[in-house]
Design a protein around this nucleic acid. Structure first.
Lengths: 273, 273
DNA sequence: ATCTAAATGAAATTTTTTTTCTATTTTAAT
DNA sequence: ATTAAAATAGAAAAAAAATTTCATTTAGAT
């Protein structure tokens, strides 16, 4: 094999090279090239045998194809494709540690944090996009629509989500109450909740006493519960009639709320329809 | 193996079953369960050996885990995860792009809203990632570090961002005050602000009277101002010493806050370094 | 404290996937 | 039409991955 070939290191570059050399390829290799540009996702995630069937070529042709473009095996080429589909939050702790030990200023670290939080937030939202069945959204909206009054609660780090949802629901015509602790009136407020009402609660581990109390109160009176939480496995997550489980990486104890906000937003908009 | 186990056929059902049986699992199996709900994408696309390393368990535990839930091998379980990403999946970018190019994107189903909002939020964050120079972040952090007390304010739809930042700053060692209107005490609280303090304000058009008043008060006493806003061009945006301008598309009047939360998060984490 | 049952991790086995090799076919030039 | 070079498909070999087995450890019960 000639060793003067430029081997692509990114998918973009590979596509350029592919376009460039396309006309010089043999029939079978053209067929592979076509398939690759039509079904990059299949190339990214399936095994060679599956790809070979879908592309209508023998497996060995796939190997030859990759070798033709200078890759050391089909698998090496495949990495370019699968990388494309992963928003990988780099391990910023590692990077900062390294940056510091190498005497690089903190200044660069801020940029690192920014990028990594950004990547993490984006990944978390992408996970949600594929991970939440629309039936669950529909069910939640149906439940919320049917409510006489929606009681919204979230304490500590969940509070911003609760206040956001509350604000948005107020713009609609739902009867909505934000169960905040102002004036020490949380408990009296929760006393108001009735069977026909719905409790919308956001709570993360470790769950606050206030959250547990609210869920118990709602169950007592037979009110339905919609929850946003970080673990369906938690005892309280299971009490909810509908539970949106979100996975945010907390970075240095600082939990992202972007995904939770996203769900809240979706539900609020959905309720307006 | 007992044959009276209900084997999940969808990821959603599996998650339910998992939540149900979670408490009865052994330590190691709990560890796998946790990993699975935190990194579904890794489970979907990586090999067992990679997963075992990331989850910190031996490979055989993964097999055992799958068998415990009635699957005929880990791979069978894995299919639930990868199917999720394949069939629901990733063509949401495509779909939205197509919908847009084919004229007005008609919002018809909750799934459309969900994807639409998700795509917008992701786009907005990607824009931020490239649009904000790290020098601005550095400056903001330097300013906030130097503050005697940080006064955080945000009213109406900006309130969740303010409360989020406030909560996170409280975890650090900054002296921080959330200027909320509780008890009608906003104005007296703002009276407290001194030259050595910093006002961190989040405000969107149309700017609330409270925001304008806060900015004016801060300028009067010579306190520095850091702002998150949607338009630097606004009269008040220009008053800020450092101003993060974010562009969120509001969908049906419902403004996203994900980008603003992202900036708040970055600043809070940055302050801890 | 002793025993039993369950849980665990390493190693062996089996299966699947990938790569390499080789015989055959196709293509193009004479 | 003949021949040489390139292309191709299938099979065998090699590598990687998944699953099972089994000895050891741990946890719980008596």
């Amino acid at each position: 094999m000639p060793n003067d070939i430029e081997v692509a290191t990114t998918l973009d570059k590979f596509k350029d090279i592919l376009a460039e050399r396309y006309d010089t390829l043999s029939n079978r290799l053209k067929q592979v090239a076509d398939f690759i540009s039509e079904e990059p996702m299949v190339v990214a995630f399936e095994t060679m045998s599956v790809i070979s069937v879908k592309a209508g070529v023998p497996i060995s042709t796939l190997s030859r194809f990759a070798n033709t473009f200078g890759f050391d095996g089909f698998s090496k080429m495949q990495v370019l494709f699968s990388d494309q589909y992963f928003h990988k939050p780099r391990d910023y702790k590692e990077r900062i540690k390294r940056a510091k030990s190498e005497g690089i200023s903190q200044i660069e670290s801020i940029q690192d944090i920014f990028e990594n939080l950004g990547e993490s937030n984006i990944k978390a939202m992408e996970d949600l996009l594929v991970g939440i069945p629309s039936s669950k959204l529909e069910d939640a909206i149906a439940l919320l629509s049917s409510a006489n009054t929606i009681y919204v609660q979230g304490v500590r780090r969940a509070y911003p989500v609760a206040s956001y949802l509350w604000y948005m629901l107020l713009k609609g015509d739902s009867s909505t109450v934000l169960v905040d602790g102002a004036g020490g009136m949380r408990s009296p407020m929760l006393k108001q909740i009735k069977k026909e009402d719905v409790l919308f609660i956001t709570t993360f581990k470790p769950h606050a006493q206030e959250s547990i109390a609210a869920i118990e109160r709602a169950r007592e009176v037979g009110a339905k519960i919609v929850a946003i939480t970080d673990s369906q496995m938690s005892e309280h997550g299971r009490q909810a009639d509908i539970c949106f489980e979100i996975i945010e990486n907390d970075v240095m104890e600082f939990r992202s709320l972007t995904s939770a906000m996203f769900i809240a937003q979706t539900l609020a908009v959905g309720l307006m329809l």
